[in-house]
Amino acid sequence: MMTHSEAEILLYRYFEGETSLDEELRLREYFRAGDIRSDLAELDPMFAYWDEAAQIVAPPAKQTAIRRRIPVRRLSAAAAAAVLFFAVGSWFNQPAGLTNFPIAEAESTTIDWSKYEVTDPEEAYKVLRNALGTASAEMNRSARITVREISAARNALK
């Protein structure tokens, strides 16, 4: 059992930061025992507090599922395999005789194109003139853009 004077000396060293863990434990026991000299009693709450704080335990762990991370490479390989699987599957599962333009092809059987055919020579001439006019305008537009770009380039080089 530690005497009061021993406790006093240890306390002095304690506040100077010179005590070992064992000595600090002995000090703790001195205060825990309850027979404390009156002039040292002022430190009792502090040691009681440390004792109390050491009793705190963590609450039970929350059930947080830690998801296992799948490496990116494996994920990419799996995604590629899935895409390939569906692509091959749909290629082999497509109905026989179906082309890339199934709707157009299906309609082509029912549309009678002959009724849209231009039979009047004047009407044919108009259609042709319109078509050539549009083509000419577009060609002129391209030429204008080219000329404009060349002038801009020239200006920039000056």
Partner: peptide, 9 residues
């Protein structure tokens, strides 16, 4: 602080 506030167990 303990001395200042005179806290006694």
């Amino acid at each position: 602080l303990l001395l200042k506030e005179k806290i006694v167990q």
